[in-house]
């Protein structure tokens, strides 16, 4: 991970937006130096030039100056606003995942990262991604807060139990980079580290093939839906259907019994499995039992992926390794994230 940068002690910069963070950093260093030098010079000049020449002297009084006060209030304010705007622009880039990104699922757990690719490959504490491809991570945790941090990509995000958070990046240089858990998570926090391996397109294909998957998340979800959890007995179309139809609902608005509505997104689907009675869709009875405690976070991710595939979103058939391929689905407003964390 040693840097090949010409600046000493400077970390590798390897994502599409890492240069923006670096630019902001150097802008702030420039401002800091521009403030430090005159102030420190003034302090030294004053303490030498106006040092005590006579014990208990009484120098002439100076009361202050409205002009000076105004100047040194307004200039820092203007400068701080440029810093704010710069930061806001970069933040927006970092935290708004693009629609056409390759999906990776991440589940944090004391003290390891469990990662699953859309094509089914599973990894622990390692994430293989192709270079020059947008990658979006959908993350949650089984226990406490964690934080998925990749310093070389200049991004990180907390992983919060009970909801999904998202992180995206586009690696620009093949290599192996640090992956840290950056939110304190208990005993072995400093052991919750791993690496992000960025491979050339071909190498990534080969890696995918070498780690042949058993089931993709969608397949696993279908298995859970139809067999293991028996969701299909109520939700499948037909005479026995008592639960809401799940075909083509993703990204649409649903109305609840007793008022209120929501856009169907990952968070909504997840919550509907765990707390079905909190959001009963109009026209249905509150008969669905909760699946809290019966499904793991990984199974939830698979179920959500399967239900999304019923709406034609993120079909796992779409090869994620082909960056040229268009976004697989039209209604892919994956940047959504409802406020159900606040229930």
């Amino acid at each position: 991970m040693q840097t090949d940068s010409w600046i000493p002690l400077f970390p590798e910069s390897a994502s599409s937006f890492s240069w923006q963070v670096d630019a902001l950093y150097f802008y702030l260093i420039a401002i800091s130096v521009a403030f430090m030098i005159p102030i420190v010079a003034a302090i030294f000049w004053f303490i030498v030039r106006y040092r005590e020449r006579e014990k208990f002297a009484t120098p002439e009084e100076i009361h202050g100056s409205i002009v000076l006060e105004t100047v040194w209030s307004i200039i820092p304010f203007i400068i701080s606003m440029t810093i704010f705007l710069g930061g806001a622009v970069v933040y927006y880039t970092q935290y708004r995942p693009p629609d056409d990104a390759m999906q990776v699922y991440v589940v944090g757990k004391q003290w390891m990262w469990k990662i699953q690719h859309e094509t089914g490959q599973r990894e622990i504490n390692q994430l293989h991604v192709p270079v020059n491809t947008k990658v979006k991570l959908t993350m949650t945790t089984e226990d406490v807060l964690h934080d998925f941090s990749i310093p070389a990509f200049r991004t990180k995000a907390d992983v919060v139990p009970g909801r999904y958070t998202y992180l995206w990046f586009e690696a620009t240089k093949p290599g192996t980079y640090h992956l840290f858990c950056a939110e304190y998570c208990g005993l072995n926090h400093s052991g919750m580290i791993g690496s992000v391996v960025v491979l050339e397109q071909d190498d990534f294909e080969r890696w995918l093939q070498g780690n042949a998957s058993n089931q993709t998340p969608v397949e696993q979800g279908r298995d859970l839906f139809e067999n293991k959890l028996g969701c299909a007995s109520c939700h499948a179309a037909g005479s026995g259907q008592r639960g809401a139809a799940l075909e083509n609902i993703y990204g649409k608005e649903v109305k609840f019994v007793g008022g209120g509505s929501a856009i169907v997104d990952d968070e909504y689907l997840r919550n509907s499995i765990l707390n079905p009675s909190s959001q009963v869709v109009e026209g249905y009875q509150p008969i669905m039992p909760t699946f809290k405690g019966q499904v793991t976070e990984e199974q939830l991710i698979a179920l959500v992926a399967y239900i999304k595939s019923l709406s034609g979103v993120d079909a796992s058939a779409a090869a994620p390794s082909a960056p040229a391929a268009p976004a697989p689905a039209p209604a892919n407003n994956m940047g959504s994230n409802s406020n159900q964390g606040g229930r």
Binding site: G87, Y91, K156
Partner: peptide
């Protein structure tokens, strides 16, 4: 100021 600038803080926090 570095840490108040939100885009930079994503890396630094």
């Amino acid at each position: 100021l570095f840490l108040g600038s939100v885009g930079l803080t994503v890396h630094l926090t």
